[in-house]
């Protein structure tokens, strides 16, 4: 039990990079980018193939990062310069990447066992923790720079930021590229941690990323960027823990996970809404009573 929980936290830390990527597009840029399903595998493929070819694992992960950035750039170009609908440009890239990933891998399933591994020197927990913290703080700082501010403003009020001279096409492309770079990086790390890459490992990744973002925000809040990125990292871990616990339920097995993910997202979306509604109703009721009673007093005094 404890072993599987530690394993869940380890995986959660590696998936946190992917969740942070999804957070950039969905929350900061307000751009629903589905490239993620493809670029996650692209990262895994690059990380695996380069390692097998003999390059050091850390270099393979860095190349995976840039591979993801290229994929994101193409999605961004499709959307901004090609004027293709945001969702559609992500889907197009996702499909295109499916073939490209197969090309990189050479065959659908490539094992890494016996090769060098990025987790050779230290535990997954240590490396995962370091990378997640570095990515989180790096993003926090980036979003305070002038460039980061213009990226945030693009998602918040694009008309406003254009009127102050920022090229919103550029900021969108940059944001989507950064997002997919983190996703691909996460893909490479996951491939190393499970000692294999396969062509379908990215399927459903966007939903897992979204689930992590939504769970994290629902539990920890997203008042500031610092809080929000922390929430996303913790959300990714919590998702993995729920996953691990769900797998221990006897009548559930691995193939039910997509359904469980859907249920988790629905819960994380609906429960806060219901809670807010109940709260505002009770406040309204209380205030109405107060107003009524104070009016009763004044009219009583007048008669």
């Amino acid at each position: 039990m404890l072993v599987s929980l530690v394993g869940a936290v380890e995986l959660g830390l590696l998936y946190a990079l992917m969740a942070l990527g999804v957070y950039i597009t969905f929350r900061i840029l307000d751009f629903p980018d589905l490239t993620v399903d493809g670029s996650f595998t692209t990262g895994a493929a690059i990380g695996t193939v380069m390692t097998i070819a003999g390059s050091p694992p850390w270099l393979a992960v860095i190349f995976a990062f840039f591979g993801g950035a290229v994929a994101g750039t193409l999605t961004g170009l499709l959307h901004t310069k090609g004027k293709v609908n945001g969702l559609l440009s992500g889907i197009i890239m996702m499909i295109a990447l499916y073939s490209i990933n197969l090309r990189i891998l050479g065959k659908p399933n490539v094992p890494l066992r016996g090769e060098a591994n990025i987790f050779d020197g230290a535990s997954v927990l240590t490396i995962g923790l370091i990378l997640a913290v570095v990515a989180k703080i790096g993003l926090d700082l980036f979003f305070k720079t002038n460039l980061g501010l213009s990226l945030r403003a693009t998602g918040d009020n694009s008309r406003m930021i254009r009127s102050f001279g920022a090229n919103t096409d550029g900021t969108i492309i940059m944001g989507v590229a950064l997002s997919n770079a983190l996703v691909a990086c996460s893909g490479a790390l996951i491939a190393h941690s499970q000692n294999a890459a396969n062509n379908s490992m990215g399927i459903g990744m966007i939903v897992i990323g979204l689930a992590s973002v939504i769970i994290g925000e629902a539990i920890f809040g997203a008042k500031t960027i610092f809080r929000a990125t922390l929430a996303v990292v913790l959300g990714a871990i919590i998702y993995r823990v729920i996953y691990a616990l769900a797998l221990r339920v006897e009548w559930l097995d691995a193939q039910d996970m997509k359904l469980i993910t859907a249920v988790i997202i629905v819960g994380a979306l609906v429960i806060p809404t219901i809670r807010r509604a109940i709260k505002s109703k009770s406040i309204a009721k209380k205030r109405t009573e107060e107003v009524l009673s104070s009016m009763g007093q004044t009219s009583g005094g007048g008669s």
Partner: peptide
């Protein structure tokens, strides 16, 4: 202050220095 920082950079390149 972040809004003002954006306005402060009107027409200038936006780089990696802190906005505020």
């Amino acid at each position: 202050e972040e809004n003002l920082a954006i306005a402060y950079k009107r027409g200038k390149p936006r780089g990696f220095s802190f906005g505020v």
